[in-house]
């Protein structure tokens, strides 16, 4: 009876008085909408289907990376190696799908596998050897990049199978495959994060590693897993990018980790661990994408674009601090 009562009061007050609370909770969604409205007014080319398709394709790579990054950041970690792993996976996949009579499937699996493998190495270094995530993945960032150049001998790999290129260019019911991949990844990861025990472990480890351990959770395995997820998704992003630009470039993905981290942070996930949300990351990636795209359309110089992007990240964090 009593708890029933308090549940009701909670809902009532929530419904009526909480404009401020809602605003801070869903503020980034409003920010995204605001940007879309402004750009639609300023540039007639913005809200066209051609530009939207283009925008979504651009966003898809960062979105996939950022979804993986969210898991890592939720555990109070960071993964600086995703850009390099993306390049490594991309070049591996490319090498498998040169020419038209190659095994597409094998190529994709190899690329994903390469990402997963490097992610697992990150996991071991962080979880078992207790190296701080920043250092561990900084090292991996260099290692993976180096391996990419070694494997490709510094040369781009082109002449990829036509079938493979469909991933990056084709679509289904008018929606690019890249977007489908993001949506499916997002759906699976949402289930993983919000509906499984593992998801709970992720939040607990990030929120208080000590308490998680004392509660009998397998902290090491949880940490291992999040770096595997991040690696795997970096591999997926690598496959996607390779298909879209129809070649494996050893220098691709440089500084992509920064955009991924930015998307996560703009999305409201705390770098201190234990607090955050996956849909926010997706919105964060869209905000960065819309910003890039819109500033291009408005012919803002790329120098200024960087300044504006940086400012947006800082503002997002400032606004977010009000949330807690």
């Amino acid at each position: 009876m009593n708890s029933q009562l308090s549940t009701n009061t909670y809902k009532e007050t929530k419904g009526k008085a909480n404009v401020k609370h809602m605003l801070s909770e869903y503020g980034i969604l409003l920010a995204l909408l605001g940007m879309v409205v402004v750009l639609t007014i300023l540039s007639p080319n913005f809200l066209t289907s051609a530009n939207m398709l283009n925008l979504f394709k651009q966003v898809s790579i960062n979105a996939v990376l950022a979804i993986g990054m969210t898991f890592v950041i939720l555990t109070k970690g960071i993964d600086l190696s995703v850009g390099s792993i993306l390049a490594f996976s991309g070049i591996i996949t490319a090498s498998f799908v040169v020419g038209n009579d190659t095994n597409l499937f094998l190529g994709i699996i190899a690329g994903l596998g390469a990402g997963l493998l490097l992610g697992a190495v990150n996991g071991i270094i962080v979880a078992k050897w207790k190296v701080t995530p920043f250092i561990a993945t900084l090292g991996m960032m260099a290692i993976a990049r180096g391996l990419t150049y070694i494997y490709s001998e510094g040369q781009p790999i082109s002449g990829l199978s036509d079938a493979f290129l469909i991933i990056g260019t084709g679509g289904f019911i008018g929606i690019p495959f890249a977007v489908w991949i993001v949506l499916i990844t997002f759906a699976i990861c949402s289930i993983l994060l919000y509906r499984t025990k593992f998801g709970r472990y992720v939040y607990a480890v990030g929120g208080n590693e000590n308490a998680a351990r004392t509660s009998g959770l397998n902290v090491d395995r949880t940490l291992m897993s999040v770096y595997c997820i991040s690696g795997l998704l970096a591999g997926l992003a690598g496959v996607l990018l390779t298909s879209r630009i129809s070649s494996g470039l050893p220098q691709s993905g440089v500084s992509y980790e920064l955009d991924a981290i930015a998307a996560v942070v703009i999305g409201g996930t705390s770098l201190m661990g234990g607090r955050g949300r996956l849909w926010g990351t997706l919105v964060g990636a869209l905000i960065i994408g819309v910003l890039n795209n819109g500033l291009d359309l408005l012919a803002v110089s790329s120098y200024w674009q960087q300044v504006i992007k940086g400012a947006i990240i800082i503002i997002a964090v400032l606004v977010d601090r009000k949330r807690t």
Binding site: R200, Y203, A204, A211, A212, T214, G274
Partner: peptide, 21 residues
């Protein structure tokens, strides 16, 4: 604070943390 609770998690999530299975 150090060993008992995961502060940013909810009442429910803390209560069930050791009995997730």
């Amino acid at each position: 604070k150090e060993e008992g609770l995961v502060l940013p998690m909810s009442v429910k999530q803390n209560i069930t943390l050791t009995s997730l299975k």
